[in-house]
Design a protein around this nucleic acid. Structure first.
Lengths: 238, 238
DNA sequence: TATTATTGTTACAAAATGAGACAATAAGAC
DNA sequence: GTCTTATTGTCTCATTTTGTAACAATAATA
């Protein structure tokens, strides 16, 4: 959970109480699976991007808006995967600290110190098209490799683990590659996406045969990379 | 969404606002896949069993408690599958009507007329061990076959459809049969569970070979049903 | 022109699945 | 008792899918 607006706008009446969302935003940099993590200024607190649900907007719209603000992207592939509601997951002390370090500890709305149930989404985005944008609470936001994450606040590590597990389960049925890759890509790139998500190496020939057999790709021109070997074809999703 | 307690106890301070849960409780009667549907008295409103989350209990505990009250069962297999949060899903007029028909329209707490975001679970239970129990708002609760459901309130039909879809997706990886069948069952019974969930017929020999190949079953004595043919073995999950 | 690394494709083996056949066997009919 | 009936457990063979390796094609470089 985190703030989208200045505290002026964080008025209790505007938002649904005790409810937040968190989003695991996946990107693929060509080699590794990455997620966007933000850091609250002067606290050493790392967290998933998130926010609250406005009383007069739908849950999905709230999340879309939040992710758009962080990434600059419209039409993002979003999937809701779990709602976390344990009694111990919230951390009012951390919340106080964040406000304090931003010289806002007099303004902290009391509803932010209450218990929160968090609805979690994951997003799949094209890494290269994103300009990660921190918000007014002056935190940074950056890509972290999935296997080199910093220690995260509250239960956010658990949320990431669940997101990855669901992503793995959905890998076959949901055309994950389409959203993590540019519109044209090589078979090798697609295979690497599958490999980083599954965390295991795949056999090149079997993978190629299976994917082509699905009949979901169009083949385009070759990609000449200036390397001393045969040039691969470019593909796109139909 | 529905009520667990008399309105005396439905005080705003006790519950998390704007948040409810709904539960699709699946059972298998030997032939059909059934779910528990309740009917509000004198309204013709059919709905999924559900409830609210107490401020000092975890989300999972709230749902466990609710399902236990309706079924009498402890240790229920529960799986959270989706949170519904559209702006249009709530229906304050229906809520008023329900209270009115129960001669409680003066007592209706105003927070019940507000927007609700609903966290949905499905449960898998042993049909024969359940005594469906209506609550103090004097409604009935009964089993309905999945393909003969009455018209449901609000978006509950959509919730059921999603539950069934997720159940289908989870069929292989989650040992669904274990929770819908008695501890000892025949191969035929297990196959029928798979068939009603998938909505398609399966080949007997292939099914048997596949399930036995998984090595998840123990074979026990034969079951003599008084029928003029070979008696099947009983199995249990390891 | 030869070398190198990677690619697309083919070939064959191994495993999984589809489809059918068949013997075994409880209980009822005679 | 013996025959009939319906269902079960198992086996066989064909088909499909997957695992594994081999090999020729080919961009760039030496």
């Amino acid at each position: 959970m985190r703030f989208k607006k200045s505290t002026q706008e964080l008025q209790k009446e505007n938002f649904i109480q005790n409810l937040s969302y968190d989003c695991v935003i996946f990107g693929f940099n060509g080699k590794q699976l990455k997620i966007l993590i933000l850091e609250y200024h002067n606290t050493g607190f790392f967290a998933l991007p998130g926010g609250f649900i406005n009383r007069n907007e739908s849950l999905d719209d709230a999340v879309k808006k939040g992710v758009k603000n962080r990434t600059g992207l419209d039409d993002i592939y979003l999937e809701q995967f779990q709602t976390f509601g344990s009694l111990t997951r919230s951390d009012p002390d951390a919340m106080k600290r964040i406000f304090k370090e931003n010289d806002m500890d007099r303004e902290i709305p009391d509803w932010l110190l209450d218990r929160f149930i968090s609805i979690s989404y994951y997003a799949l985005i094209n890494y290269d098209k994103v300009t990660p944008t921190p918000d007014e609470l002056s935190d940074s936001i950056d890509w972290y490799s999935i296997d080199e994450l910093p220690v995260l606040m509250m239960d956010h590590r658990k949320i990431v683990a669940k997101a990855l597990q669901v992503l793995q389960d959905n890998l076959e049925k949901k055309l994950v590659g389409m959203n993590l890759l540019p519109s044209k890509f090589t078979m090798k790139q697609l295979q690497m996406v599958y490999e980083v998500i599954l965390g295991e190496e795949l056999r090149r020939t079997t993978f190629q045969r299976r994917i082509l057999g699905m009949n979901i790709l169009d083949r385009h021109e070759k990609l000449f990379q200036g390397k001393a070997h045969k040039a691969p074809y470019l593909y796109s999703f139909k």
